Simulated scan of single mutants.
Amino acid sequence: MKVLAAMSGGVDSAVAAARAVDAGHDVVGVHLALSRMPGTLRTGSRGCCTVEDSNDAWRAADQLGIPYYVWDFSERFKEDVVDDFVAEYAAGRTPNPCMRCNERIKFAALLEKALALGFDAVCTGHYAKVIEHDDGSRELHRAADWAKDQSYVLGVLTHEQLKHSYFPLADTPSKAEVRAEAAARGFTVANKPDSHDICFIPDGDTRGWLEERIEMTEGDIVDHEGNDLGKHPGANAFTVGQRRGLKIGKPAADGKPRFVLEIRPKENKVVVGPQDLLEVDRLRGIKISWAGLPLPAAEAGDEFECMVQVRAHADPVPARAFVTEETEDDDAATELVVDLDGPLRGVAPGQTMVLYQGTRVLGQATINSARSRQWDPSAVS
């Protein structure tokens, strides 16, 4: 099989490429240049796709004796990930840029180019597993190491993309084993720290970064009953569940802290309230995709049981889901409705919910609304 190994410069992708070589595949390494600041250097474990990362990927490819290329995807990354991130915050939602990167860059733009060049599959260092059935259909499943499982951020992959996805780390029992293997192979990245935070905001100051790109206008902070509490410098810099940075001069009657319950960008209003009002029991999602063939019940619009996960490292919770057609202002839209068996706290529009049955990833949707059991947002005018 002709395999294009996406090499980020980290230990996982280096070992994944090595295993692809060991399996006898014809492997070519490629590093995606996503940053528009080519002089940027990695600081500790923040950020990725830097000059240092490119050099680390090259060294690993050289040790493996495979061809290595750097592809400039910076413009596509800016349009599909960075600009989308800004637009979502401007609309009062909290996006997940890693989901967009996997969807639109690594498994859309990269895979599209790989197939055009005659490759059979794209290999990455993600911890997830693709299972192929006798009829040729594919399913996406959690990795053996649940602590490192990355199936959540791959929930955006379609059945066609799964046909060309190759995850050599799927059955690895732990990250420690991957590092040990990298060390045994002599890879310099064996002890390189994992990247975290948003790669295009390497200092971790998301609010400061957004304030340079979104026009912030002072507006009202109100409580869950509609009472005016004070002013904010710009609603777009807040997110549901946030506690710090509200700077409300009037304490709550019970003396307990307040949390952001809702952001209303059209009204430039931030709604706050007690922590227990962050609990929701119904999620409605848009931009639905299925990781493999959809369940017959989902296609028929029938309710089906599942587990739902709303963050990369969150525990999944039991739920029941169904797909429905909703009409608003004469426009029909398909929605995924998920009723939770127990409440989730601090769920924000813009987050991704991924559905599971056992270890199998069913699909995903972008959360459009989250309903509280105890609070009706329409009470705030």
Rank of each mutant, 00 (worst) to 15 (best):
L362M: 14
C48A: 15
D194V: 07
L4K: 02
E88V: 15
A184M: 05
D376R: 14
D135W: 07
L362K: 12
V380G: 11
R179M: 15
T324I: 12
L278H: 06
G342P: 00
A61G: 12
K256S: 09
L162S: 05
K129E: 14
E335C: 06
Q364D: 06
R311N: 03
P296T: 09
L246V: 11
A18F: 00
E325P: 03
R284V: 15
A379W: 14
A91D: 15
L32A: 05
K192F: 08
K287R: 15
Q63E: 12
F238K: 03
G255H: 02
L277G: 09
T352M: 08
V178W: 02
A23N: 12
D22Y: 04
A5I: 04
D205G: 13
V222Q: 09
A319S: 10
V3W: 07
L283H: 09
S369C: 06
P38E: 04
P251C: 13
S54N: 03
L115A: 07
V82W: 00
E132N: 13
F73P: 01
P274I: 10
R284Q: 08
D80G: 08
A332C: 06
R179I: 06
K192L: 01
D120M: 03
I248S: 11
D205V: 07
W209G: 05
V380F: 14
T40G: 01
C199S: 14
E215D: 14
K247F: 15
G24A: 04
V81I: 11
A144C: 04
E326D: 03
V130E: 10
L293H: 12
G249I: 14
E181K: 04
L362N: 13
A60K: 08
K192P: 13
L140C: 05
R100E: 06
S8W: 03
Q351R: 05
A235Q: 05
K163P: 04
T158Q: 05
N368P: 09
A128C: 02
D80V: 13
V28W: 03
D276K: 12
P294C: 08
V280Q: 02
E303I: 08
A57R: 01
E325V: 10
S45N: 04
R320S: 15
G234T: 09
I286A: 14
R243S: 13
R345D: 08
P38I: 11
K106Y: 03
T158I: 14
D197G: 14
S378K: 10
A176I: 13
A144T: 11
G136P: 13
Q150Y: 01
R142G: 07
W290F: 15
T206Y: 00
R264F: 09
H232I: 11
R36C: 01
G47T: 07
D205C: 03
V70Q: 01
F167S: 04
I131R: 09
D120R: 00
E112V: 08
E326F: 02
F119N: 02
N236P: 00
R264K: 08
P173F: 05
